[in-house]
Design a protein around this nucleic acid. Structure first.
Lengths: 207, 207, 207, 207
DNA sequence: TATGAATGAGAATTCATTCAT
DNA sequence: GATGAATGAATTCTCATTCAT
């Protein structure tokens, strides 16, 4: 599967990958044009369909390919020894920011994929349980130290509240246009604001 | 502006409005077909473009039109005398559920608009500060009773945490497919879960 | 159905009909190019699909349309009072030759349709029991005078033999290239040969 | 000519031959895909075009190759001592049925070739006077015993009538779908009906 | 011999928008 | 106001054939 593609020169692989990534990230699945992709990648029309039998397969290939790359790097860098929920969370956010800075196109692509409405692709995307980073925090808090929580607090719901707070904050930043594209993030400022929220929640949930 | 449209028979206005609403709600901006809209509304192709100079204007008109309708009803039904944050919030959610049940097509349209990626329309949508209900809770908590909060708690951030928790919960429901379309909501069950979260937060933030 | 098409100017109707007829007749369903059709008919690409939702519908429309025209003319010109099998048959053949001379393109189209292998269209063609002239002689001999036949002769099978002899003869002419296209028929010569065959069979089957 | 092809291993020859035969038989010349052929034959794209300079040559090579095989077997099995027209004819039909059962793919290919409309190939096919079995009976009745015919009967035309009757009957069976593919023939039933026709003609033509 | 990457014209179809009537 | 015929660029995808390796 896709062995054809992996056998060509790495340079050409990269050109195709990047061209497709950019096009899908910018325009979404439906509006992305295979014509633009081949033009940008400087390959012929037929060649793209020689590697990927149709647009959908190309899209899903890209998705799987980059999910694996990002996830590998992500999981390998997590400090699993840190069992304090809030510290762990903060670490994850910092890590995510770093990855976003390193691979902005990939993250833009993931966001496009996450919001994809096209029936063609949506179902396939949902089948894949490798959910993208943005919405997969839940698994990352299984071995957390629960001894610090106030009695009577439902820890799973508490974790959800923290996650959703972070997501909500992040969405708001996006809406404000604070980081229209991934590369314009003012990390200091944002981290400081995140710490305010994390502290507020820590005060609330910890003894 | 749009005076042409408002001068035709209310029956025809409604047919056009509903046809367009449904089409955009189902397929999103890009994939929505003006052909389908005129067919459903039983008007000619030319007429649609006589009223609205292009697809984008039609979409944005619909948006503004229905935002106003929904907002009017929403604001008029809020009990502004209830100043307890959590009660106010719960009231708002119940109210929103009621409206969703009453105008499911409109809410499906809003959701489609909220997730719209199409560059054409996204920018225009962002310009409008009448943000859609889903994400506009912030303004609704200006006159809240702050005396019940624990000392040292930043109330604005606390409100955001509540809002984002509710949004995150709602998104998760959608992802689970619990309410694929607006009309299949199990209100009892969801309200009960919402109350768990609200109580957890109340315990955390109130004295 | 197809009212759109019938409402345009007869001149344009004819241009489209003829262009499509010629293209399908020459290249068969699959290889016929809608591009060529619109070029020949001097209309835009979109317009063809405005009238006929796809290539298949265009093809089947042509088929039904011309079958009706030819059949109407054919049946209206048959002398139903002539009840002698061989005279009737000869009349029909002469009539068919006349029609082929009058509408050569249509007959070329029918022959293409008759041999059409494309699954897309074959099934639809088979559904239509209006079989094309070439293969529908059977119905034309229901009221024949059977008193002249030798005793013991199965009349239905005898009729089949006559039909198949005529068809076989006709196919052989085509194979020999004697009438590569419909308009080059040497009617005298062919009729004379046909009469030989009919006489041979008449001698065999009649008392 | 084709010496390249005949020098490779018989196993590979056979794979290529069978793959091409099947593809052309199923889809006809135009729609047959060289991609499918090389995939099925497990050879590379380039190799196919190394042996046969293009699709057309491959097709015509197949045709010549299999016509020869079938014809050799056919002619070698005819009982040339049987000089009665009707017995000879019946023998031929039985022989043909046997071959069709033995080599169904080849016969399906012949039928596809016989109906081929593609201009590219049609002309070449017509040039070859090795006509395929189905339509080449004529040569098989040169040494027939003519003494049994009624006086005044043109024997060549009589033979044609028999041939065309058989062909017509066979075509009708196909149209009825009685043998959609070669392997589902109910030989008993068909032979019985054939005998009816042969007897009718025998009674008519013999003294 | 053998490979399979690469080509690029051409296929059918869609669609927002215009404009003469 | 109202019609709907007309446009044509853009879409995804196919395929026989070539050629450097």
């Amino acid at each position: 599967m896709y062995s054809k593609f992996f056998n060509i020169s790495p340079d050409k692989q990269e050109r195709i990958l990047n061209a497709a990534l950019k096009e899908f990230a910018q325009k979404g699945y439906e509006k992305a044009s295979t014509n633009e992709i081949v033009k940008e990648a400087e390959i012929s029309k037929g060649l793209l369909f020689h590697y990927f039998k149709n647009k959908k397969e190309l899209f899903l290939f890209l998705y799987d390919y980059f999910v694996e790359i990002i996830m590998d790097e992500f999981y390998s860098k997590i400090d699993w020894n840190e069992r304090d929920l809030f510290i762990r969370f903060r670490d994850l956010i910092v890590l995510e920011f770093e990855l976003m800075k390193k691979y902005p196109d990939i993250f833009n692509f993931f966001m496009a994929a996450y919001h994809e409405e096209s029936a063609d692709v949506k179902i396939e995307l949902e089948k894949r349980n490798k959910e993208i980073l943005v919405s997969s925090y839940q698994k990352l808090f299984t071995d957390i130290d629960t001894s610090k929580f106030k009695q009577g607090i439902d820890i799973n719901r508490a974790i959800n509240i923290i996650i959703w707070t972070m997501e909500g904050f992040s969405n708001e930043q996006q809406k404000k246009g604070k980081f229209r594209t991934v590369d314009q993030i003012n990390m200091e400022e944002i981290l400081s604001e995140i710490d305010h929220y994390l502290n507020l929640l820590k005060t609330s949930f910890y003894v």
